[in-house]
């Protein structure tokens, strides 16, 4: 028994170190790759302050913010997905069920529709306004879903999911109506946003998201035992003395806060929130204290790889990262599903 336990422990440590090492390799590759290739030696020289000004500009102002953004968003979306799968007791849950995707998508499409061609759309301001539009939409949808599933002082997982389906469908319908009326150029923009792509890649946003996650993620890790209990079902959770209503509301709030911010700069990438927790669970088991950190690292790695590939494959055209992540993540996810029981 202790033997298997320590074996599990060793496996977990090994996987964490491996994933971390892979992330570092991926960062180096991602700095190196792109429309303008920078040799690895130059990359390292520039990172330590010995590069030429052109490489410095490319790396510090364009590539690095985007890389950090991808890592942070990937990390956030997977943690948020893991929390949701735990509290809704549903393996199909991803941040999308809370309406964050459809709400954000709806406001972004509305914004594109009403401001197309104006200064707000084309100027530098749009970089800042778009994420905020998305954030407002995402939070509104999540808030609506929570309020509507509230009854007699309780929010049951089943009702949460059902109301989520309804609100998502309503926002999706609004989305279709406006999308069909759009000009082709904006239509393409909307499709790219909805499929997920990393937005607002400058240091201001990176810092904002970093601070946001630094506050919220430790709270989640602290609650990982509560998540373990909640996942067993309401009656058992009450039986072992968890204040399920309070805990669930708190965790839900954190999950929405994390996912909302990530979606506002990343668009529709919630598929990552579905698969990263499942991958981690199949690799190290269901205990959240191990599964959460691993799924966070896996999510960061996957999103960075997907973003890099999306930049490179059709360069100078960009493929939305959400698409690459499905093409990249789905086969591995299916492989894990086949291999493990």
């Amino acid at each position: 028994m202790t033997n298997t336990l320590s074996k599990n422990e060793a496996k977990y440590k090994f996987l964490m170190i491996m994933t971390f090492a892979l992330i570092i390799v991926a960062v180096l590759i991602s700095i190196n790759a792109g429309y303008m290739k920078i040799p690895i030696a130059d990359v390292i020289a520039t990172l330590f302050g010995y590069g030429n000004p052109q490489n410095e500009l490319t790396i510090f102002e364009f590539r690095l913010p985007r890389i950090f953004m991808a890592l942070l968003v990937g990390l956030g979306i997977s943690i948020s997905g893991a929390i949701l799968q735990g509290i809704s007791q549903n393996p199909l849950a991803d941040p999308g069920i809370l309406g964050i995707n459809s709400g954000a998508g709806f406001t972004v499409v509305l914004y594109m529709f009403f401001f197309q061609g104006t200064v707000f759309m084309t100027g530098w301001l749009s970089i800042f306004i778009m994420p905020f539009a998305a954030l407002i939409g995402g939070f509104t949808a999540a808030f609506l879903i929570y309020i509507l599933s509230w009854k007699n002082g309780r929010v049951t997982p089943v009702r949460l999911i059902l109301v989520g389906i309804g609100i998502n469908a309503a926002f999706g319908a609004g989305l279709t109506i406006f999308q069909m009326k759009m000009e082709p150029i904006n239509f393409m923009k909307a499709i790219v946003w909805l499929s997920g792509s990393i937005w607002g890649t400058n240091w201001t946003f990176v810092w904002m998201i970093f601070l946001w996650l630094v506050v919220l993620i430790p709270l989640v890790l602290y609650k990982s035992r509560v998540l373990d209990v909640l996942k067993l079902g309401d009656s058992i959770a009450i039986g072992v003395g968890a204040n399920i209503e309070k805990e669930r509301r708190f965790l839900l709030f954190i999950s929405v806060a994390i996912a909302g911010v990530c979606v506002s700069v990343g668009g529709g990438i919630t598929f990552l929130g579905l698969i990263a927790p499942h991958m981690a669970r199949r690799l190290v088991g269901a205990s959240h204290s191990k599964m959460l950190p691993l799924s966070a690292l896996l999510g960061a790695l996957l999103l960075l790889l997907a973003d890099t590939l999306g930049r490179v494959i059709l360069a100078p055209m960009e493929l939305p990262v959400g698409i690459v992540i499905s093409v990249l993540g789905a086969p591995y996810f299916i492989y894990l599903l086949i291999k493990t029981t």
Binding site: V192, F271, S326, G329, I334, L337
Partner: peptide
């Protein structure tokens, strides 16, 4: 359900990519 959502996501991403 899980395989279904993975395949769904894979195929619809591929069709969006083709569309773009």
């Amino acid at each position: 359900a899980l395989v279904g959502s993975a395949i769904t996501s894979l195929l619809s991403s591929l069709s969006t990519a083709i569309g773009i």
